[in-house]
């Protein structure tokens, strides 16, 4: 199994290709949309590339869940993710660092969960479970 550093390097190279950004711009905490300018279609491109790069299968909605809460009022109330919503988030995205988000669970900030580090952690989990 590759080391964490090797995985991060490959994930960075994938993002350089998919998003046409410079290597220097990519930090573990960089958010895909805010910092690296990813658009919705780029997420699918990134998934395709990660599958090829790491030889894994990434089921639809696993790495980048679309509309996690489906407008369910139990999960989102007045623009804030509820306690139940946060629980759902932890279950669906165990590889995401939701610590910061939990302190101010504003729906508009949910895209900040999608970071370079989140992808690397997801891949680590995938490769670990494959062995």
């Amino acid at each position: 199994m590759p080391t964490q550093a090797e995985i991060f390097k490959k994930v960075s190279a994938t993002l350089v290709e998919a998003l046409n950004v410079d290597h220097e711009e990519i930090q573990p905490t960089s958010t895909l949309q805010g910092d690296l300018g990813a658009e919705s279609i780029d997420f699918l491109d990134i998934v395709f590339r990660l599958e090829r790069e790491f030889g894994i299968k990434i089921p639809r909605n696993e790495l980048f869940p679309e509309s996690i809460f489906q407008g369910d009022p139990e999960f989102v109330l007045n623009g804030k993710v509820t306690e139940k919503g946060l629980k759902e988030l932890r279950e669906k995205m165990p590889f995401a660092d939701i610590g910061k988000f939990e302190r101010n669970p504003d729906m508009t900030a949910i895209s900040d969960l999608f970071t370079v580090d989140m992808i690397a952690k997801y891949i680590e989990g995938k490769l670990g479970s494959k062995a």
């Binding site: 699918l44 491109d45 395709f48 599958e51 090829r52 639809r60």
Partner: peptide, 10 residues
């Protein structure tokens, strides 16, 4: 074709 999946292709 490089990738062909239900969601799209490259």
């Amino acid at each position: 074709i490089v990738t062909l999946r239900p969601e799209g292709a490259s």
